[in-house]
Amino acid sequence: MAAYIVRRILQAIVVMLTVALIAFSLFRFVGDPILALVGQDTTLEEQAELRKELGLTDPVVVQFARFVGNVARGELGISYGQRRPVIDMFKERLPATLELSLLSAVLAIGIGIPMGIYSGLHRDGWLSRVFQTVSLVGISLPPFLVGILLIYLFAVFIGVLPSQGRGDTVQLGWWSTGLLTWSGIKSLILPAITLGLFQMTLIMRLVRSEMLEVLRTDYIKFARARGLKNRVVNFGHALKNTLVPVITVTGLQVGSIVAFAVITETVFQWPGLGFLFLQSVQTVDIPVMAAYLVFVAAFFVIINLIVDLLYYVIDPRLRLDRTTSSDHGG
């Protein structure tokens, strides 16, 4: 197990270095950072001086090596856009993104799995059909549209929820939370639904089809033949066996909730990392872009690691494979 984790971590480092290198070679196509840094009257000489000072005239490989060296020392540089250390900005923005992502994930899993189980067990019930229809909407509408529709419905027409921002926050050490104030919670609702909707429908559909699959298998039939209660068969046997693929997909989806909160955060002016990233692309704020991409890569790698470890917990076959090489899986 320990060797396995070490191996995964080494792989992770290679993945992250690759991501960083690709990112760095892409930055050249985003535009000229200098033009976002100066006004229209700044002379070409001053611009050239600034370009040199920031090391932007060096070859990509040199810039990349310098970046990796700085990150290894814990220095992420100064943001071109806000003139502050990137690390401070990340600390400030991270709580907003994580709280939003966490609530979206809870919504997606907490609602998606029961809905999936229900429509798997009662595939012809009218409620299942309603779920199917809703999930079709959720899976086909792009998040920015869902967000705008929710804003117009709940902020403009009904007027019960704020259209943008994070509301009041409470500072707990360096962590700012919106979960402890009424306005913070209200502000969280619409973005969380927007961000979680797609994942929710995806999980629901996945659980449903897995359930239908498993319920057809022989061991379920045998279980029923043994006279076990429906509840035990459905949840103890069927559900547990559907969970491996569900966990894989859910895990990856949690990663993408964080990584792709960009759009939702922009629609709701949510002060999180994704929004910061989008702004940094528009202003060619290379230190922020670089740090964000590395952060997202790291996040995905960690999520994948956790998912792999969860397999061990849920699927006894994996544990058995290591100890005995006998064929229990059948």
Partner: peptide
């Protein structure tokens, strides 16, 4: 622990206003 920002009262007001829109 400090409460940042002063949105509370005015956004509460915003609710009432928005309900009646404009």
């Amino acid at each position: 622990m400090s409460i940042k920002g002063r949105f509370t009262r005015t956004s509460g007001l915003g609710l009432v206003l928005a309900a009646g829109l404009a």
